[in-house]
Design a protein around this nucleic acid. Structure first.
Lengths: 193, 193
DNA sequence: TTCATTACTTAACTTAAGTGAACAAATTTT
DNA sequence: AAAATTTGTTCACTTAAGTTAAGTAATGAA
């Protein structure tokens, strides 16, 4: 698990043994059972998450209905809005599968960042990269029909369609579960004919 | 114009006179006419933009049709995907109005960031903030109907609806111009009845 | 294993967005 | 000022998503 982390970090900065040990001493690794809720609406969390194994999802409860808006899988990083904003969270986060997460909090990060400016620089690069990537995702979403979005997802994250319940996928695609069922049937029909 | 910039920066870090002068010596301010295209599809730009005055938009040309996906107005910052990715751009950027932009390139930023670690830290904070904000925008988009999105925009960025042509707003809302016209008529009808 | 709950699909009907076309209004060019 | 282009609205028609409801399959708990 540690190797996975250091391997990921090495894409941005190279760490000395001292720095690696400083990171490990923080006890960041956590194993969580499927279904565990790690952030609740209204909570003022200061935690950031990095997925080493498994899958977590972000969802809102609007008019009593769950609306899933994001999935994070292996090597994805997430700092919830409430952490940045220091405000109560608008959404929930829970584990879709048994997962191993790296969990850090703001105070920790600030301490490390001030000790090792490298980390600050890495976080900047990571944020910039994620921001640019998310902009592209958002653009694709805006310029596509639900059907195209589904086909696009099938290309880019085929694992998600296996790992995640359909009704969660549906709201992730911005539609109702019934529409996703229908849409899939329509695509299969096209492939035949 | 400089005051606007320094005032913005002061929300993140406090600069010395030396640092301010270092920034100013870079000749970052540019006036651009409405309609000017500042980034073209296929280009490998290294420029980032900060809007001091005016409005710029990001758009794709898909099957010969313009699809506008983002507007940046006063105090908005944009580093295009192609800059982060060092790849040819998938989209265009142009001025919706006569605009005053701060334009920096990657080499410049790296030089400044290495001279003044403060800037690195500021960029990290800014990126994190923008990432979190955009996540919320994306979530709202996914969980709303076109009509709700329009009403939401009317609340959050009423200026845009005045400043920007309807057909550009339409694709920004993920729909066709005709649908936006109809949707607006529908809302007016509701307000009456 | 059975019962209960949750997840997924199908169908009929409603509502709203996409499409193509015509037209009017506004803006830009000549 | 006139012509040309761009922009916005309206309409009739098509297509697809939302809604409600029923039924089946899968999962989890007693």
């Amino acid at each position: 698990m540690q190797d996975i982390l250091f391997n990921f970090i090495s894409k941005y900065v190279s760490l000395t043994e001292d720095e690696k040990n400083a990171l490990l001493s923080l006890d960041l690794f956590h194993s969580l059972k499927k279904g565990t809720v790690i952030l609740k609406e209204g909570q003022r969390s200061k935690e950031s998450y990095f997925v080493l194994k498994g899958c977590i999802r972000v969802y809102y409860i609007i008019d009593g209905e769950e609306k899933t808006t994001a999935f994070y899988t292996e090597l994805d990083a997430l700092t919830p809005h409430c952490v940045i904003n220091n405000a109560p969270s608008d959404y929930f986060i829970s584990c879709v599968e048994d997962s191993i997460l790296l969990i850090s909090n703001t105070d920790m990060s600030e301490e490390i960042n001030s000790k090792f400016p490298k980390f600050d620089s890495m976080c900047r690069m990571l944020s910039e990269e994620l921001l640019a990537k998310q902009q592209i995702d958002f653009d694709e979403f805006k310029t596509s029909s639900p059907e195209k979005r589904y086909l696009n997802l099938l290309q880019k994250r085929p694992d998600l369609i296996q790992r995640v319940p359909q009704h969660q996928l549906a709201s992730y695609l911005g539609i109702k579960p019934q529409s996703l069922s229908r849409l899939r049937a329509r695509i299969l029909e096209k492939d035949k004919g």
